[in-house]
Protein backbone atom coordinates (compact mmCIF):
# COMPACT_ATOMS: atom_id res chain seq x y z
CA UNK A 1 0.00 0.00 0.00
CA UNK A 2 1.23 3.46 -0.84
CA UNK A 3 1.12 6.07 1.86
CA UNK A 4 0.99 9.84 1.41
CA UNK A 5 2.06 12.40 3.95
CA UNK A 6 -1.47 13.36 4.89
CA UNK A 7 -5.02 12.66 3.84
CA UNK A 8 -5.31 16.14 2.32
CA UNK A 9 -2.96 15.03 -0.47
CA UNK A 10 -4.99 11.98 -1.39
CA UNK A 11 -7.21 12.82 -4.34
CA UNK A 12 -9.07 10.27 -6.41
CA UNK A 13 -6.52 7.54 -5.87
CA UNK A 14 -7.55 3.93 -5.44
CA UNK A 15 -8.00 2.10 -2.17
CA UNK A 16 -4.36 1.03 -2.12
CA UNK A 17 -3.40 4.58 -1.20
CA UNK A 18 -3.64 5.81 2.37
CA UNK A 19 -2.45 8.70 4.50
CA UNK A 20 0.45 7.65 6.71
CA UNK A 21 -1.36 7.91 10.01
CA UNK A 22 -4.47 6.24 8.62
CA UNK A 23 -2.51 3.25 7.37
CA UNK A 24 -3.40 0.12 9.31
CA UNK A 25 -0.13 -1.41 8.13
CA UNK A 26 1.85 1.38 9.71
CA UNK A 27 -0.26 1.23 12.87
CA UNK A 28 0.37 -2.51 13.13
CA UNK A 29 4.06 -2.06 12.52
CA UNK A 30 4.32 0.54 15.26
CA UNK A 31 2.52 -1.70 17.75
CA UNK A 32 4.80 -4.62 16.88
CA UNK A 33 7.95 -2.51 17.04
CA UNK A 34 7.19 -1.20 20.50
CA UNK A 35 7.11 -4.75 21.83
CA UNK A 36 10.19 -5.93 19.95
CA UNK A 37 13.86 -6.00 20.87
CA UNK A 38 16.36 -3.21 20.37
CA UNK A 39 17.72 -5.13 17.39
CA UNK A 40 15.08 -3.47 15.23
CA UNK A 41 16.22 0.01 16.17
CA UNK A 42 19.16 2.12 15.12
CA UNK A 43 21.30 3.79 17.77
CA UNK A 44 21.17 7.19 16.09
CA UNK A 45 18.92 9.03 13.68
CA UNK A 46 19.74 12.10 11.66
CA UNK A 47 23.08 10.89 10.42
CA UNK A 48 24.38 8.15 8.17
CA UNK A 49 23.80 5.13 10.36
CA UNK A 50 22.68 1.82 8.94
CA UNK A 51 19.56 0.05 10.07
CA UNK A 52 15.94 0.34 11.03
CA UNK A 53 13.72 1.97 8.53
CA UNK A 54 10.79 0.92 6.47
CA UNK A 55 9.42 2.31 3.25
CA UNK A 56 5.76 1.83 2.50
CA UNK A 57 5.84 1.56 -1.24
CA UNK A 58 4.16 -1.50 -2.60
CA UNK A 59 2.24 -4.15 -0.77
CA UNK A 60 1.13 -5.97 -3.87
CA UNK A 61 4.51 -6.70 -5.43
Amino acid sequence: MNTLHSSSFKINDNKNVSAELLSTLIQEDVANLLGSSDDNFADTIGTDSHTSARIFICEKG
Partner: peptide, 17 residues
Protein backbone atom coordinates in the same frame (compact mmCIF):
# COMPACT_ATOMS: atom_id res chain seq x y z
CA UNK B 1 18.04 7.44 20.80
CA UNK B 2 16.99 3.98 19.66
CA UNK B 3 15.24 4.96 16.45
CA UNK B 4 13.12 3.61 13.66
CA UNK B 5 11.97 5.59 10.63
CA UNK B 6 8.89 4.86 8.56
CA UNK B 7 8.81 6.45 5.13
CA UNK B 8 5.88 6.84 2.78
CA UNK B 9 5.90 6.88 -1.00
CA UNK B 10 3.34 7.81 -3.62
CA UNK B 11 4.60 5.26 -6.16
CA UNK B 12 3.01 3.49 -7.90
CA UNK B 13 -0.64 3.78 -6.90
CA UNK B 14 -1.08 7.45 -6.01
CA UNK B 15 -0.60 8.71 -9.55
CA UNK B 16 -3.64 10.98 -9.47
CA UNK B 17 -2.59 12.66 -6.25
Amino acid sequence: VKSYAIAGSWKPDATTS
